[in-house]
């Protein structure tokens, strides 16, 4: 009976491509999430301080 050729090397490289691309994409999504989190942290404190300045100025106007 004819034995099939040994092509495990090609199989290895193909699966490396599959899992390499999938892992790289998931890693990239993780980096994106970290960047969004950092951006959100930088925005939220400034949004809170903006509203407190508005509150202070409206209180000082009403006292006059």
């Amino acid at each position: 009976m004819e034995t099939p050729p040994d092509t495990y090397q090609a199989l290895f490289w193909a699966y490396l491509v599959v899992w390499g691309l999938l892992s790289a994409y998931i890693l990239w999504l993780g980096v994106k999430c970290l960047r969004i989190e950092a951006k959100l942290k930088s925005i939220l404190p400034s949004a809170n301080s903006g509203s407190s300045d508005i509150d202070k100025s409206s209180r000082s106007e009403s006292s006059h």
């Binding site: 004819e2 099939p4 050729p5 040994d6 092509t7 495990y8 090609a10 199989l11 193909a14 699966y15 599959v18």
Partner: peptide, 19 residues
């Protein structure tokens, strides 16, 4: 099982076509 003429490399089929 291994494919008769191509051997183990035929298993790429199970990712190539579904991709």
């Amino acid at each position: 099982p291994d494919e008769r003429t191509m051997g183990a490399v035929q298993r790429i089929f199970y990712f190539h076509v579904p991709s």
